[in-house]
Amino acid sequence: MRMSRLMACALMAMLTGAGGTGQPQPLTMAVAGLRSTKGRILICLTRSPDHFPDCSGDAASHHFSVAASGDVIALGMIDPGDYAIAIIHDENGNGRLDTFAGIPREGVGFSRNPVLRFGAPSFSSARFPIDGAGVRQDIRIKYFF
């Protein structure tokens, strides 16, 4: 029995892993709404709801620190799964989120741009999948002061 060329190509793609499924994919991010280009953007990427939004104690999380700009930021090749991103516009460059009475004094943002009320959003409201294709997250910074 003779296979069609299309079926043969599809079978070859499945056998070699082409098509992206299960393979690390590129993740990029852009930040909108920065009030200045002072300081750094601190980025936390995690798969763990228990360690969102600050990634503390999550050995599998990814941390990045980049210059504050609206440029597209490449976060690398990321394994498939569900992730969430939290970012801080660390304007004074001290490496942490400054607060006053529990309210951020510096800008914050999250993947999928959930509505911010009292406290950080849940992991599920910021969650996005990486599976089979590159992903770009456009994150809007929110300032409370």
Score class of each variant (00 low, 15 high):
A86S: 14
M3W: 15
R105D: 10
P121R: 13
P104D: 12
S69K: 15
Q137L: 06
L27M: 01
A30L: 03
A68G: 03
G76C: 09
T21D: 05
C44D: 08
R40I: 02
Q25M: 08
V108K: 06
S122V: 15
P80I: 11
G17C: 13
R96K: 13
D54R: 15
F110V: 01
M29L: 07
A67L: 09
D54E: 13
D50E: 10
V66H: 03
R105H: 08
I139W: 00
I43L: 05
D58S: 07
G107V: 05
H62P: 00
G109R: 02
R117K: 10
R40M: 05
G76R: 10
F118M: 10
L6E: 12
H63I: 02
M29R: 00
M1N: 06
N94T: 10
H51K: 10
A101L: 15
I141M: 10
M29E: 03
S125W: 01
L6K: 13
G119R: 09
S61C: 07
G81Q: 11
D138P: 00
F64H: 08
G93A: 07
A133N: 10
S36H: 02
L97W: 11
L27A: 01
G93H: 06
N113R: 03
Q23C: 00
D98W: 11
H62I: 05
S61W: 00
M7R: 08
R136V: 09
S4C: 08
S111N: 07
G76Q: 12
A18W: 12
S56K: 11
T99W: 05
R136E: 08
N113H: 04
I88P: 05
M14V: 10
F145H: 08
S125I: 06
P24M: 09
P104T: 11
P53A: 13
H63L: 07
L42Q: 08
H62T: 06
A120L: 08
Q23N: 04
G22A: 09
E106F: 12
L42M: 14
R127T: 12
A84T: 09
H63P: 00
R96P: 02
D131E: 13
L6S: 12
G95M: 09
L34P: 10
T99S: 13
M3I: 14
T16A: 15
D90F: 05
Y83P: 05
P53S: 14
R35C: 04
